[in-house]
């Protein structure tokens, strides 16, 4: 289970593969191969189509979300559009529109937003890529709605008592994106420079945007 796979701090940008799964043919891996081959035999898909889909997924990274946030910080009209119609805002930036309704929720001095999917793993994949293991873990899904400040603390994130913490539970049809607070001291930053400050975890709401 995901809980067993700890982040290796010595390798900040690479994470270990799940042990015993990339080189061992487990029953479930055999099932994946069998199903994929049967779908290819039946001409429902092709090996090339599967490969292209994997590539497309590899290209969906939190950098997309970071561009959206940086634009919202820089352009008041875009910010308004993002908060009113998240999908239209993504489309306006030339990004994927997303298959499901996107709701952007903005952090302010008074409100800190956090996103979860208690039932499974719904996540704005088109803006952030695939969700990390902890997002899908029992501990996060169970506790972030009942004790969000403690869970934020486990990420090293302390929200002051003068702000409320709102937890948003995603559904199969609706995905949330947190618009973090713009860090101080970033006046005059270009959008691309701002985008570098926007982390995946800040867009899930378990941390803040980076200080420059």
């Amino acid at each position: 289970m995901s809980e067993h796979h700890h982040h290796d701090e010595s390798v900040p940008h690479r994470h270990p593969l799940r042990a015993d799964q990339d080189d061992t043919l487990t029953y479930w891996r055999a099932m994946e191969i069998a199903v994929r081959e049967l779908l290819i035999d039946k001409e429902i898909t092709t090996a090339d189509e599967v490969r292209r889909e994997v590539e497309a997924m590899d290209n969906r990274t939190p950098a997309h979300g970071g561009r959206v946030i940086a634009r919202a910080w820089s352009d008041p009209d875009f910010r308004k559009l993002l908060l009113e119609d998240g999908n239209a805002a993504c489309e306006a930036m030339g990004l994927e529109r997303g298959l499901y309704k996107l709701v952007a929720v903005e952090n302010t001095d008074k409100v800190h937003n956090v996103v979860v999917c208690t039932l499974c793993s719904c996540y704005p994949r088109f803006l952030l890529g695939l969700p990390p293991d902890w997002y899908k873990s029992r501990n996060y899904r169970s506790r972030v709605i009942s004790d969000p400040r403690a869970v934020l603390g486990e990420f090293g994130t302390v929200v002051g008592d003068d702000a409320v913490v709102r937890v948003h539970d995603s559904t199969a049809d609706m995905r949330y994106l947190v618009v973090p607070k713009r860090p101080s001291g970033t006046e005059g930053f270009s959008e691309s420079k701002l985008a570098e400050l926007v982390t995946r975890d800040a867009m899930i709401g378990v941390s803040f945007a980076r200080q420059p």
């Binding site: 995901s2 796979h5 994470h15 270990p16 799964q21 994929r36 695939l130 169970s142 972030v144």
Partner: peptide, 26 residues
Amino acid sequence: MGGLPAGEVVASEHDFALWEKRVDAL
């Protein structure tokens, strides 16, 4: 499982194996 007691969140992640990406692609 929302709201049920559970343990501390460990910020775990792993790079997805090719077979996992293929499941997602399917």
